[in-house]
Each structure stands twice: as C-alpha cells, then as structure tokens.
Nucleic acid binder design. Structure first.
Lengths: 251, 251
DNA sequence: TCGTGTTTGTTATGAGGCTTAACGGAGCTG
DNA sequence: CAGCTCCGTTAAGCCTCATAACAAACACGA
C-alpha cells in the first residue's frame, strides 16, 4: 500500500511551503517512469513492460517504483490515460492548423493525425484501441473513459461544425435501424454527439474505415507497400468516408 | 533441445509399425495443449498464456510440455498458424453456403464470417491481426504467411468471380496513384490478385473498412451498442464498401 | 519371454520478475 | 538539534520459464 495511491488521490496537506518543490520532484519522477516505460515499449515493440527494466534504465532498484505506482496495473492505467490524451491532442493540434472553415481539410487533417499517431506510437495505440490487457480494470473514477470520450469528440465535433456551416449533405445511407437510432438518441441526450441519427451512423462508419486502415498499417500488415502507396491509399479511404458521410470531399 | 523440434521437422524414421499409434497419441497431446491454451486465453481474455496453467489444467507438470514445444514461441507460432487457418476456413465455409452466382450475398457472407470469427475468438484475432508479440519471429518456412495469404485470398477471389460474371462495376475511385499501381502490378504478376489496379485499390479500402469495424467490435469498443444495432451498423458498412468497390450492393 | 532403445513423464534446480517488509538516509520544520 | 516525511535501499517470498537428471511405459527384436 504505502502511499503510492497519491497519484490519483487528491491529498489535503497542511499546505507547507515545501509542497511545490517536493511535488515537482515527485511529478518529474512519475513522468520519467512513464517516459521510460514508453521508451522500453517502443524499443521492444511491445505493450509489455517490466518494472525491473524501467528501474535499471533509471538507475534505481525495482521496489523504488512502488513509491510511485502501487503496481503494474496502476502504471498501465496512467499510460492508457496519457495515450488517450496524446491521441486527442494530436488530432486537435492537426485540426487547429487548418483554416477553421475548411471542413474537408479539417477531416483530412484529423484522419491523418489519427493515422500518423498510431503509426508513430503503435504501442500506445494498441494500449487504448487494441485488445484489453489481462486483469486490467479501468479505474473507477472514469478518467480513462472520459479521456476516450474527448478523443472521439474530435470526430463528432467535425460533423457538428459541418452542420452549422451548412456543408453537411445527406449521408449515403439515409435509413437508420431503430436499434441504431436508439443509441444515437442516448448519445444525443448526453450531448456527446449533436447530430442526427443518420449522420451519427455515418460517423461510426467513417471511424471504422479510418480505424481499419490505421490499425492494419500500425500493426505492420501493409508493410509490403511503400510509404507513398500507403499515403495515397489512405487519402482514398478518407475520400470515400467523407463522401459516404455527407461531408465535403477533400481535393 | 530434446526432440520437441519434431513438430515442424519432417523426420525420416525406419517406418516401424508402431509409428501411427504413437504419432496419433502425440498429435492428440499437441492438439490438447493448443486447445487448452486457447481455452485459457478465452477465459482470461488475453493473448497471454502460461505454461504452468496449461500443465495444471491438463494434469501434467510444466516441463512435460517441452516434449511438445521447444518454448513458448513455438506454441505461439502454432497458434498463429491455426488462427489463420481457422479464419480462412470460417470465411470459406460462409461463402460456400451461399449460391455461387450471388456475388452480393457472398460478400456479405464473407464479411459477416470475418466479423463473427473475430468476435467469437478475439484472442486469436488479436494474435494474427493485432500487435505482433514480443520477440516473436515468424517461422522461416513461411507457413504463417502462406496461411495469411490464403485467408486474404478469400476476399480477392470474390472480386475475380464478380469480374468473370460481368458483375463488377467501376470502383468509386477510378484513379490510382502510381505507387499503388506498382504494388498492384506486383501482386498481379504473382497471381495473388487477378484484378486491375483500381479494383485492387478498392479491395484494400473494403478490407480496411471491414477490418476497422471488426477490430473495434472485437476489442470491446462498441459495447455501448446492443447486438442488434451493431448488426445493422455492420451491414451498412458492408453496403458502403461494396458500393465503393463496384461490387453488387447487398439487399 | 526378456533385454534394449525410444518416448514421455517426473522431480530437482536455477535464473529472473513481481511484490512486500523492514530498514536507513536526506531534507524540511520546529 | 529532534522529529517527521519522503524516498531509496536490501532482504525475502512467491511465481513463471526453462533445463537437467532421472524413472516408468512401451514397442521391438532375438
């Protein structure tokens, strides 16, 4: 137990003057642990991570890490949280670098960012969108699912913007199965997705297409193609998705 | 070392009469090990597998397993090979149960089989199409990549059949980037894909869309939808893919 | 029927990872 | 300086992978 829980808990101290200094050091160590874990994952091409290895790279002994994370699961949780954050930020950043009224360009930018991030960080990508890890249970505070929602919101907000700009045409599949409509309604009531059911459906189709290419590429199943071919192919996938969803088609 | 290598090697014995009996027993044990490994993976929801656990379930001691597999990697290799085989067979079986001249139905059947198998066997699916395992190297005999090729051939043959039947219309994206065309030419020369570049491109787009939905669902990212909604959504995805590829559109 | 060699299992052993417990030192606070 | 907290260490227990050495079962030939 010790006090490793303090990562997630908010602890009320008597607010001594040294708090910022010590806390900064602590935060820096936590960050170094996470960065080292990621570096090792990248190096070994795996989601696996050994406390012993992290400690060795950091010139520490393995038990020292337990001052910062109660166990491996807590570290994994933190990494998953960060990964959602990083993906969301990557997409948001890409969208911000595009003229705000150019919906088609924003869609391409978002899609490319999703793909680029997954390709650069396949381990983090696998962490959040691949097979869930053994015994891992999402933290009860919902911090990871909240982060997941924010990442997905990047996509749905694009539809909302297109709708507001009057640039959202009808999706290629206009009819919606009642069960799908029910899901759309729930999402709509929670204000997670502020578009109609047909466009909600189209959005999921677009996400799936986007994700499929991204996932296959990130996991090395497109390595028989060179980078140029993959780029062109992905752009085509984006065009198809935009067209089917009623979004302005890029190019 | 011992003699566990005999799984993959073809060994030339003096062909004694007892060979079939002992070999059958050996094959049965190998099969039981693999089945137990799969059962444990399913139970724990993971790709991880512990020799100790397998042995316990089989009422054996862990070292006994080394008589059949040199190490964990060799077991994984066998499981990957079997998984490709199983996926290919699932798709082939689904296609065989549909009138051979109904291309649209065959496409739906193949897609549903791909999705169904991934959903029923998410661990095996992750094994072959998810993130590659640490330290794992595909066997030099190319048995896994050959199995992979056969599984993918189920999709490409569908396009060939449609072409022969005169039911293959133009794909929604007719222009092909030179780099993609070069890849298509290579595949064509090897007779792995006997369709033109534009349809080759469309096939990859279809695979990606199909795979994206399948992968998200198999990894639990669509669990907020009920089964009915997911079914309807997937059918829509198939329709979009068929339409974009120039295949006959189902329904 | 009885040795003989092969196959297949066992126990014993060691290396290495995860995790906790117990302890010691650094640094801030009074 | 005494006392407290935080951070790191060493020591130790348990578990897994993997190998070595040994024992039983079995098929086979003389």
């Amino acid at each position: 137990m010790h006090n490793a829980i303090r990562n997630t808990e908010e602890l009320h101290e008597p607010d001594p003057a040294d708090r910022p200094r010590r806390e900064r050091a602590r935060a820096a160590t936590i960050d170094e642990i996470k960065q080292t874990a990621l570096a090792l994952m990248r190096e070994r091409g795996t989601v696996e991570v050994r406390f012993t290895d992290i400690a060795r790279v950091m010139d520490m002994t393995p038990p020292a890490l337990y001052r910062y994370f109660a166990d491996r699961d807590e570290l994994i949780s933190a990494l998953i949280h960060d990964a959602y954050q990083a993906l969301g930020e990557a997409v948001a950043k890409a969208r911000a670098e595009v003229p705000p009224d150019d919906i088609a360009a924003a869609f391409v930018a978002a899609g490319q960012a999703y793909r680029w991030w997954a390709h650069e960080e396949p381990q983090q990508f696998a962490l959040i969108l691949g097979m869930p890890l053994p015994d891992y249970a999402a933290p009860a505070d919902g911090s990871t699912s909240e982060a997941a929602g924010r990442a997905m919101a990047q996509l749905s907000s694009l539809f909302v913007e297109a709708l507001r700009a009057g640039r959202l045409g009808p999706p290629r599949i206009p009819d919606v199965h009642p069960a799908v409509e029910a899901c759309a309604r729930v999402k709509h009531e929670r204000h997670e997705v502020d578009v109609g059911p047909a466009h909600f459906q189209a959005m999921l189709h677009a996400w799936a297409a986007l994700h499929g290419f991204t996932s296959l590429e990130a996991n090395g199943h497109f390595e028989w193609m060179d980078a140029e071919a993959r780029d062109a192919l992905f752009l085509g996938q984006l065009r198809l998705a935009a067209e089917a969803a009623g979004l302005p088609v890029p190019d």
